[in-house]
Amino acid sequence: MTRAQVKRRLALAWWQYLAVGLVPLPVMAWAFGGGDALIPVLAMPLFIAGAATMFLSLPRFGAYKLALIATSKALGTRAEPAAWIELARARRMAMLYACFPAWVGALSVLVGLETVPRLLLALSTLVLLYLYRIPRQLG
């Protein structure tokens, strides 16, 4: 597989994780947004928990950056395919953790969290996922 094909697959994976992270929020809002809240007192604690999940991705971001640096150093060597695989693995795990705020926002529909806090959680997922785009300078 060429370097361009690997980068194309990683770009496609980014878009897939963006969809996996953000699509549950409008689906849950459409399906359950019109009903009564199950436990409205949990709305604010769930928002705080969703915002706190952003910090779960910090160690994964460090691992991703280390893998990114190792991949840039391995370009053109025999270790390049293994470096791309390690970068994809670290990035996949980091993007999974980056989706947590939006997923908590989707669950918060059930407890009656307002639209603006849910959008803030989705925006935080979007920003976190943006950190995991493969830079143009790589390859």
Rank of each mutant, 00 (worst) to 15 (best):
T2P: 15
R3E: 13
R9I: 05
R9P: 05
A11M: 10
A11Q: 14
L12T: 15
A13C: 09
W14N: 09
W14E: 06
Q16P: 03
L18C: 13
V20K: 02
V20P: 03
G21E: 03
G21W: 05
V23D: 11
P24E: 02
L25Q: 01
L25H: 01
P26T: 00
P26D: 00
M28Q: 04
A29N: 01
G33F: 04
D36I: 04
I39R: 00
I39W: 02
L46M: 13
F47A: 14
F47I: 05
G50D: 05
G50M: 01
A51C: 11
A52F: 12
T53D: 07
M54Y: 07
M54I: 13
F55R: 10
L56Y: 09
L58C: 03
P59V: 08
R60W: 11
F61Y: 15
F61N: 10
L66T: 14
L66S: 15
L68W: 05
L68P: 03
A70W: 03
A70M: 08
A70H: 11
T71P: 02
S72W: 05
S72M: 12
T77N: 11
R78C: 04
A79C: 03
A79L: 14
E80R: 12
P81Y: 04
A82M: 12
A83Q: 03
W84R: 10
I85V: 12
E86S: 14
L87E: 07
L87Q: 10
A88C: 08
A88T: 13
A88N: 15
A88L: 11
R89W: 07
R89I: 04
R89C: 05
R89Q: 12
R89F: 09
A90E: 13
R91N: 04
R92C: 12
A94S: 09
M95R: 12
L96W: 08
L96Y: 09
Y97C: 13
C99T: 15
C99S: 10
G105L: 07
A106E: 03
L107S: 09
S108Q: 02
V109G: 06
L110T: 10
L110V: 10
L113A: 10
L113D: 04
E114Q: 14
T115I: 15
T115D: 08
V116Q: 10
V116E: 08
R118A: 12
L119V: 13
L121M: 11
L123I: 05
L128V: 01
L129H: 08
Y130P: 00
Y132F: 15
R136C: 03
R136A: 14
R136N: 12
R136K: 14
G139S: 09
G139K: 06
